[in-house]
Nucleic acid binder design. Structure first.
Lengths: 214, 214
DNA sequence: ACAAAAGTGTTGCAAGTACACCCATGC
DNA sequence: GCATGGGTGTACTTGCAACACTTTTGT
């Protein structure tokens, strides 16, 4: 059975990279200039090389021209329906990534508001929808939301991040309670300066949680 | 970029098939007779053919010599670390399956108690551990447990199934309450006969839930 | 008679949700 | 002085967990 040697499907990764910017949840898209789907937008992706891990392929696709640290990466689902790429049998292992807000990305893609997406080629609308659903679900039962924030943040910044991702307002007192209880965040002692409002305590992710974001 | 044509990884599916039998949660394993891992047990698996879907590949692997209906199938995770198969780069899309208790399987594998597993070859212990974790988690927030049962069942049978899967006893009144509220199950009006105990009402999955098991 | 499973309600706790006001700062 | 966000506590509701006895049947 191992020596079955019919044509092999191609294996790619497709990556839904999220970032918060200007009060929007944005996702990185690339405009195709070749058929099929020329002129439409797609998720960045690429072939999985023979000797690299799936995560390494994601990193390669994402940071071809970028200087990135603090990138959260999680496998989403594998899309392998015959015909999803009209040229060849392509099995795509989809991942989603979160770039912290203080990162700088400078690559070929453009960042689009995830709430107002253009038409996407291939089955990438389905991939992105799956990613958004997963992301929003994990926001409530894990610490994944902190991946969007710089290492130090105020509770107001955190609440605005959560609200942007979920697309709905949250109650301030309940939100603060949920972050402060059980040491999910810890105060640094420093205070923010420089808004038309009182200084805010600066927090960082709690020590126990720092490596348990998923 | 599309015309990249280095060697392609092989794509396989690996399948963790579960079934309840004799009060045990059992999983289908195959004893390898060739290196690597000769003599060890592995999950059934096989190559993904060029023009079949991933689910079709699972079905082919599972039912080569079996007559099966009512098979629940769900994608689990994709395992693609270089070196996980020492012979070649193999990317495995792992699925798990649930066979209803009234099915008959007659294939090359053997059913093992999932609580007392032998040593497994490749990374199949990790795959199976992931599958068990997923299965147990979904038991509490979805209707996946009914996939183990025949179409009609008593609440006692259901409770014994849940307890076997979770490996711990459940409170009878709470269990019954959770199934009966919100129409998760509906009474058929029939009653079981033939144990040293009172007849039990026979239920089936509620109509709204019948197609919403995940 | 006895063993075995069917059937049946209430209480306590924890988690989540709703809700309003005063304060410190920058302009 | 006014606009902006920082900071704070309580009450209600809901879901989950603990807990014991009576009844019907088969042997």
């Amino acid at each position: 059975m191992y020596h079955y040697e019919h044509p092999r499907p191609a294996v790619t990764i497709d990556l839904a990279a999220f970032m918060l910017s200007a009060g929007e949840l944005r996702v990185l898209l690339i405009r195709r200039d070749a058929e099929p789907f020329a002129g439409e937008w797609t998720l960045p992706g690429g072939f999985v090389h023979s000797e690299e891990s799936l995560e390494a392929a994601c990193g390669r696709v994402l940071s071809a021209k970028a200087r990135l640290e603090r990138v959260y990466l999680e496998q989403l689902y594998t899309f392998g329906a015959p015909g999803r790429d009209p040229r060849d049998r392509v099995i795509s292992v989809a991942y989603y990534a979160i770039l912290a807000a203080d990162q700088r990305y400078s690559g070929p893609g453009q960042w689009h508001d995830a709430q107002a997406l253009p038409k996407l080629g291939f089955d990438h609308a389905e991939i992105l929808s799956t990613a958004l659903t997963r992301l929003r679900a994990k926001l409530t039962y894990s610490d994944i939301g902190f991946e969007f924030l710089p290492e130090e943040f105020t509770l107001g910044e955190a609440q605005r991040a959560w609200e942007t991702i979920l697309g709905r307002p949250l109650d301030k007192r309940n939100f603060r309670k949920s972050l402060l209880e059980k040491g999910r965040v810890q105060a640094t002692g420093k205070k923010s300066r420089g808004g038309a409002h009182p200084p805010a305590m600066i927090y960082k992710l709690g020590e126990d949680q720092a490596q348990l974001s998923t």
